[in-house]
Simulated assay, not measured.
Amino acid sequence: MRILFFGLGSIGQRHLDNLQAILSERHLEATIEAFRSYPVKETDGHFTKVKMLYHPDEIVGDYDIVFVTNPTNQHYSTLIQMFDRAKYFFIEKPVFESVKSIEKIITKNEQCYVACPLRHKLIYKKLHELVNANSVHSVRVIASSYLPSWRTSDYRNSYSAQSSQGGGVELDCIHELDYIIDLFGLPNQSYSTIKKVSNLEISSNDHASYLLDYDDKVVELHLDYYGKYNRRNIELITNKGLIEVDFIKNTISQDGNVIETLPEERNDFYINEMNYFIDLTLQGTVNINTLKQSLETLKIAIGEA
């Protein structure tokens, strides 16, 4: 296989490390190249087996897989640039920073996978079973965290802080909306409030709340960058009581009592996702998050549904 990465920031490096480990484990041969806008340090062990490219003219020929892990506002132009030169695309979430026309690239809809790592957690698979086994009347979802604690460097310089680069909690934390739609489908109507409300020194939005209306249920979603106590959970109010799934503690609770814990390391679900994607490229397994699907999610996320 011939593989090309666009962008090797923190998430790109994670995907690269996981990919290399899986290729070795599965005895798959591949050459890996990476296009970056600036040189890397020679001492950086991530890149010893990667051919680095620093000018577009160095991108020559066709590829089996292209990883689009550069800033969100560059995703669309990267896809257009490489559309005819790659068989499969792994696109980091969110797919774009704004709604784009995908008419030029729609023929590769099934070959474009948009990352949705939470769906590869063990506890998410259990959540799916619980939703199918219960009559769910309403749902509350929250993802609250403190942006300055995310970053090892100054959070004010991160892409998350820059609206011009596709930052903002409505895009950064699109995971929640993605899995809500996977669980319940697209809502009949959606309402949103997306704005900056805290004193964080950022130009992007730090708050997003949504109300999603379905025939038989209502879903409330809260996202923020300013919460000092990390929370990432979903509450299902069902005909049998309250079910809560905590994605940080990896616990399932019934009416306030923990009934199951599914321990998992932080990188495990990224490994699961990468194995899934390799199967998609080699065996043609079903693409669970195509360009079209991710674009519908994006429309709701930015309040344009």
Results as ranks from 00 to 15, higher is better:
Gly227Ile: 00
Asp182Gln: 13
Tyr76Phe: 01
Gly167Glu: 02
Asn250Ser: 04
Arg266Ile: 14
Met82Gln: 08
Phe184Ala: 01
Ser77Leu: 04
Phe35Tyr: 14
Ser135Ile: 15
Glu110Pro: 04
Arg266Thr: 06
Ile259Tyr: 08
Asn205Asp: 09
Asp178Arg: 03
Glu25Gly: 09
Thr281Ile: 10
Cys112Tyr: 09
Tyr210Thr: 09
Gly303Gln: 06
His75Gln: 00
Ile80Val: 10
Asn109Val: 11
Ser164Gly: 04
Asn257Gln: 13
Gln13Asn: 14
Ile91Asp: 04
Asp246Ala: 03
Phe5Gln: 10
Asn109Phe: 11
Ser198Pro: 01
Gln20Ala: 02
Thr78Ser: 12
Cys116Ser: 14
Phe96Trp: 01
Thr285Asn: 14
Glu304Asn: 03
Gln81Ala: 08
Val219Lys: 08
Leu212Gly: 04
Ala143Val: 14
Lys104Asp: 12
Val258Glu: 12
Ile59Lys: 07
Glu33Lys: 14
Ala30Ser: 15
His128Tyr: 11
Val99Glu: 11
Asp44Thr: 00
His222Arg: 15
Asp62Ile: 02
Tyr276Met: 04
Asp178Pro: 06
Gly166Val: 00
Val114Gln: 08
Gln283Ile: 13
Pro94Lys: 04
Ser192Gln: 11
His46Leu: 01
Val66Asn: 02
Ser145Met: 03
Gly168Glu: 02
Leu23Glu: 10
Lys104Gln: 12
Phe47Gly: 02
Met52Ile: 11
Thr69Ala: 07
Lys240Leu: 06
Asn205Val: 04
Lys125Cys: 13
Ser145Ala: 08
Cys112Gly: 05
Leu127Phe: 12
Asp246Trp: 15
Thr281Trp: 08
Val219Phe: 03
Leu177Ser: 04
Pro39Asp: 06
Tyr191Thr: 06
His128Ser: 14
Ala115Tyr: 06
Gln189Ala: 05
Lys104Tyr: 05
Thr238Arg: 02
Tyr38Asn: 12
Lys125Tyr: 10
Val68Pro: 07
Arg231Pro: 07
Ile174Val: 04
Lys196Phe: 02
Glu33Gln: 12
